[in-house]
Design a protein around this nucleic acid. Structure first.
Lengths: 167, 167
DNA sequence: GAGATTATCTTAGTCATTAAGATAATCGCA
DNA sequence: TGCGATTATCTTAATGACTAAGATAATCTC
C-alpha cells in the first residue's frame, strides 16, 4: 500500500469528513438551543452552567469571556441563575473586586438529564469500535477543541467588523 | 491481543471521548455565535442562510421550522435579510399564499469566508491521518449527525415542559 | 360557492443583550 | 506611604429579536 497514490480517495474522504463535521456542528447548535429551552434557560445560561460544571467555579469575568457576552450581561445572568437556584455567587475574599460563582452541586445532575438519552445512544455508537479507534476519535476531538479555542480568540481579537453598521 | 481484557483502558478511552466530544460541541456553538456576529447576523439568520445554501430555496414556513422560530419571526427575519441583500423573496405563482425565499448566489461565498481559516486548520489537522482514519472519522460524524436529527425530533415532540413558567 | 384549512403578516409586549460609564478594589512605582 | 493606573463588576438606557394571538388572504373540500 505504501507509496501507492490514493490521492483521489483521500480527497473525497476529506470532503466527506468536512461536510459531515460541519453539519454535525450545525445540528449540535440547534440541539443545544432545544436543550436550553427545555431547561428554561437561554443558550448563554446553559453555556455558563456547563462551564461551571466543568470548572467547578469561576469569576464573573471568566464566565463573560467563555460565554462570549459582556460583563453587564453576566451580571443579569447571575441574578437569573441565582434566583432559579442554579448557582451561588460571593465576593472573593482574596480580591474583593471579584465575584466567585459556583454551580450548586445538587443541581448538576439536573443539567445532565436532557443529555442522558443522547449519551446512551452515543455509548451504543461506540460499542462497535476498538480501543484504538476510540482513542483516535478522542484525540481528534481534543485537537478540534484546541482549534475552536484558538479560532475563537482569533475572531475576538482580529475581527475588524464586529457588528453590522446599524449597531 | 484478541481476547485480552482491555476493559479499563476501554472505559477510560470512552470517558475521554465523551468529554472531548461534548466540549467540542459546546465550543462549536460559541463559535457559531461568533461567526454570526462577525457577519452581522443573528444565529437564526445564519441558520436560515446555511439552510438556503444547502437547499437552494425554501418557503417561509420551511425556514421557520428549520430555524426553530415562529412564522412571525421569519417575516421580520426575511425583511432583514432582503434589506441586507442576502436573499430574494417572492410569492409562489402556483400558490400565492407561499413566499419562496432564495439565497442570492453571489453572496454564498461570503457566507463561507469566516469559516475559511477554520477549514484551513481543519485540513492541516487531517494531513497526518491515513485514508482509513479519515474514513473512520467521517463515518462517525455521519452517525452523530443521524443521532442529532433523531434526538431533535424526540425533544420537539416528547417534550412536556417547553418553557420556563414565567413565559 | 360556503366553510375549513393553510401560509404568511401584523401588533403589542417581553426580555436578553449591548455600550458607555460609574463604582470600587488592587497594583505599581516614586 | 500614597497616588495614578489598571482591573473587575455593576448600573443605566436603549435596542432589537422573539413570541403569542389574531388578522388577512389564498387554496382546498364537499
Amino acid at each position: 500500500m505504501a507509496g501507492m497514490s490514493d490521492e483521489p480517495a483521500r480527497a473525497s474522504a476529506i470532503t466527506d469528513l468536512m461536510h459531515a463535521g460541519r453539519e454535525t456542528s450545525r445540528l449540535s447548535t440547534v440541539f443545544r438551543y432545544a436543550i436550553a429551552d427545555r431547561l428554561g434557560l437561554t443558550v448563554s445560561d446553559l453555556e455558563c452552567l456547563d462551564f461551571l460544571a466543568d470548572a467547578g467555579s469561576a469569576t464573573a469575568g471568566q464566565i463573560a469571556e467563555r460565554a462570549n457576552v459582556t460583563t453587564g450581561a453576566v451580571t443579569s445572568m447571575l441574578r437569573r441563575l441565582q434566583q432559579a437556584g442554579w448557582v451561588t455567587a460571593e465576593r472573593d475574599p482574596a480580591d474583593r473586586r471579584r465575584v466567585i460563582v459556583t454551580l450548586r452541586p445538587e443541581r448538576a445532575a439536573e443539567l445532565e438529564r436532557p443529555y442522558e438519552r443522547f449519551a446512551h445512544r452515543a455509548a451504543q455508537l461506540v460499542e462497535g469500535y476498538s480501543v484504538a479507534e476510540i482513542r483516535l476519535l478522542a484525540r481528534h476531538f481534543e485537537r478540534m477543541r484546541a482549534m475552536y479555542l484558538a479560532e475563537l480568540t482569533g475572531l475576538r481579537d482580529g475581527g475588524p467588523t464586529r457588528r453590522s453598521p446599524s449597531r
